[in-house]
Design a protein around this nucleic acid. Structure first.
Ligand SMILES: [Zn+2]
Length: 528
DNA sequence: GTTGCCGGGCC
DNA sequence: GGCCCGGCAAC
C-alpha cells in the first residue's frame, strides 16, 4: 500500500494549520472533499491536522514544527476500501525514526522510561546490518555505554531461537561470520533500532512488534532488500511497535516521505493459538522456498545448494543458520477458521508481509504470546514501555472497517479519551493502555511531548487473512471461510440512538459527513 | 416530516 | 470499487 502524504499533495485538498481547502465539485450537495477542520482544539504544541478525503482527519502534534504528512490510500492494499492514514514526521528524528540515530527515546515513547531500552535490530537486510554496525554504533556510543552497545552478538544478528544449536560455534565467530558474509548474503538484515537492551528483551520487543499482517506492502526495502520479497512470511499480528523496526533502516529511506513505513497494528481481535503446529524449516534464500522437516536437512540444502559447500560433508560452519528459519505449519487451522467467519474477522493479515527470515523465526515464536490475547499484548507493551495503543476508526470504515491500534505516548491516551475531540467518544481501557475511539471527523494523533513520539502511520481497516502460520504451509484455511451467517433478509436493525453525521452536521455540512453517510450507508463514524 | 440506511444502479 | 439515490422503516 502506499500512503500518500497529503501535505505533499495539496491538490487533494488538504490543509495544514487550519487552512481549509474546499474542493467542491458539482453535485447535489456540492462539496465532495472533506474540509479540514481547524486545529483549534488543542492548545499548546503545534498541531497539524490533515484530512483525508474520506473526511477523516488526522492531526499531529509536532513539537518541532517539522512538516507533517499524512496520507491514506483508500482502497489500496490488501483490503480494498482500506483507508490508511499516515502521519509522519518528515524531518528530524522523526521520520525514521525512532530508531534512527542516537535517540533511544524515539521509539514511540516506548523507550522513554527505559533509557536505551528501545533498541533492537531488525534483521532483514544483511547489507543494512553491516551498515548499521558501522553507522549506528558510533552514534549510539554517544549515549550508551559501550557495554550496552555491544550486546550479545545475537542481539545484532538474530538467529532463530528455537533452532537447535547446530554447531553452536562460538557465537562471536558466528556474528563475525555473518557480518562479513552478509554483504553477499541473500538475507537482508535491517537495523531497526539501536539495541541497548539485553538481547532477550530486545527480541521480545521485536516480537511484540512483530509484523503486521496488514497491508502495507511497503516494507521499505531498498534496492538491496529485494532479496526478500519473495520470501513468504507468516502473517503475524503485530502491535504498534512494528513500525519502528522498519523505520530504523537507513536515513535515506526513511527520510523520503513517500516511502512511508507503516506501523502495523495489532489485530483488533486476538487470535488464538493454533494447536497442531508442526515445525518445519524453510529456506530463506532468495527465491528458494524449500521447506524441510528437519534442520539438518535444511542446513544441508543450504550448504549444498546455496552456499556451494561440499554436499557430502556435514561440516557446518553455522552459516546456514542464517538462511533458514523455522516455521510452524498449522495442521488444523480449520477449526479455527470457523470462529472467524465474519467478514471483518481479524484472523489474519493481508498480504503476507515480507518476513525477514531470522526475525520471522523469532517473531513467530513470540507471536503466540502476542496474539494470545489482547491483554497480553498490552502487558507486554506496558512492560517495556509506556506506550499506548489507540484503536481508531476512520470514516472509510464503511469501505473496510477495522480498528487500528497505534502506539502513542501515554499522554495521548488521556487526550484521546479525555479531552474528546469533537463528538467522538473515547474509551480508555484499563490503565489507558489502549484507547479506542470512534471519532468524529478528526482523528488526532499526538505525539507525546518530550523526546518524540511519532505516530508514523496509521492504517485503518485492514482485513486479515486467516493465515496463521507460514504460508509455506498449505492453506487449508480457505475452507474455513464459510460465509458468515446471513442475517435474515427483511430484518432491519432498529435504528441506533446515536446521532449520525446527517443529523450532527446537517445537510449544509454534508462534506463533513463520513463517507458512509454521504453514500447513504450505515454511518461509520457514529456507530451504535 | 426527518433520519438512517438497504438495495440497487451507474460509471 | 466508488459513488449516488430511490425508497422504506424507524423515529
Ligand atoms: Zn456518518
Amino acid at each position: 500500500m502506499e500512503s500518500k502524504c497529503i501535505l505533499e499533495k495539496s491538490s487533494v485538498g488538504t490543509s495544514v494549520g487550519g487552512v481549509v481547502d474546499f474542493n467542491y465539485r458539482p453535485g447535489r450537495y456540492n462539496s465532495r472533499v472533506p474540509a479540514v477542520a481547524k486545529s483549534s482544539f488543542t492548545p499548546g504544541p503545534i498541531f497539524y491536522k490533515c484530512v483525508t478525503d474520506g473526511g477523516s482527519t488526522a492531526a499531529v502534534k509536532n513539537e518541532r514544527t517539522s512538516s507533517v504528512g499524512s496520507g491514506h490510500s483508500p482502497g489500496v492494499g490488501i483490503l480494498q476500501n482500506v483507508e490508511k492514514t499516515a502521519v509522519r514526521d518528515q524531518k528530524d528524528i522523526g521520520s525514521t525514526g525512532i530508531l534512527k540515530r542516537a535517540s533511544p527515546t524515539l521509539c514511540l515513547g516506548m523507550g522513554r522510561q527505559l533509557p536505551g531500552s528501545s533498541i533492537s535490530l531488525d534483521i532483514r537486510n544483511p547489507g543494512k546490518q553491516a551498515e548499521l554496525a558501522n553507522s549506528i554504533r558510533p552514534a549510539q556510543g554517544q549515549n550508551v555505554p559501550q557495554a550496552e552497545i555491544q550486546p550479545l552478538p545475537s542481539s545484532h544478528i538474530p538467529v532463530p531461537r528455537n533452532r537447535n544449536p547446530s554447531g553452536h560455534a562460538d557465537k562471536e565467530v558466528m556474528a563475525a561470520t555473518v557480518l562479513t558474509s552478509l554483504s553477499t548474503s541473500p538475507l537482508v538484515l535491517y537495523p531497526s533500532c539501536v539495541p541497548t537492551e539485553p538481547a532477550s528483551k530486545t527480541w521480545k520487543e521485536v516480537l511484540s512488534a512483530s509484523y503486521s499482517s496488514s497491508t502495507s506492502g511497503n516494507w521499505s526495502w531498498d534496492a538491496s532488500d529485494q532479496s526478500v520479497p519473495s520470501t513468504p512470511s507468516p502473517p503475524l499480528s503485530k502491535d504498534a511497535n512494528t513500525g519502528f523496526l522498519h523505520s530504523a533502516q537507513g536515513d535515506d529511506a526513511s527520510e523520503d516521505v513517500s516511502e512511508s513505513t507503516h506501523f502495523m497494528f495489532e489485530d483488533p481481535i486476538p487470535r488464538k493459538r493454533k494447536n497442531s503446529m508442526k515445525v518445519m524449516f524453510k529456506c530463506l534464500w532468495k527465491n528458494c522456498e524449500k521447506v524441510l522437516s528437519t534442520s539438518s536437512g535444511i542446513q544441508r540444502h543450504i550448504r549444498t545448494v546455496h552456499l556451494g559447500r561440499n554436499s557430502d560433508s556435514d561440516y557446518s560452519d553455522g552459516e546456514e543458520d542464517f538462511y533458514y528459519s523455522e516455521i510452524e505449519v498449522n495442521m488444523d487451522s480449520l477449526t479455527e477458521g470457523l470462529s472467524s467467519l465474519t467478514p471483518t474477522s481479524p484472523t489474519t493479515a493481508g498480504p503476507p508481509p515480507i518476513f525477514p527470515p531470522p526475525l520471522s523465526d523469532v517473531s513467530r515464536s513470540e507471536y503466540v504470546g502476542v496474539n494470545g490475547s489482547q491483554s497480553h499484548t498490552s502487558s507486554l507493551l506496558s512492560q517495556s514501555a509506556p506506550s499506548t495503543l489507540c484503536h481508531i476508526r476512520t470514516d472509510h470504515a464503511y469501505q473496510a472497517t477495522a480498528p487500528v491500534s497505534i502506539p502513542v505516548g501515554p499522554e495521548l491516551a488521556g487526550i484521546g479519551s479525555g479531552n474528546g475531540i469533537g463528538p467522538g467518544t473515547g474509551t480508555g481501557t484499563g490503565n489507558g493502555i489502549s484507547v479506542s475511539w470512534q471519532q468524529p471527523p478528526p482523528v488526532i494523533f499526538k505525539g507525546a511531548p518530550g523526546p518524540v513520539t511519532h505516530v508514523r502511520t496509521v492504517s485503518i481497516g485492514e482485513k486479515r487473512q486467516p493465515a496463521v502460520s507460514t504460508h509455506a504451509t498449505v492453506s487449508k484455511n480457505h475452507a474455513l471461510l464459510t460465509p458468515a451467517t446471513k442475517s435474515a433478509p427483511g430484518t432491519r436493525k432498529p435504528r441506533g440512538e446515536a446521532k449520525k453525521c446527517r443529523k450532527v452536521y446537517g445537510m449544509e455540512k454534508r462534506d463533513m459527513w463520513c463517507t458512509a453517510c454521504r453514500w447513504k450507508k450505515a454511518c461509520q463514524r457514529f456507530t451504535d
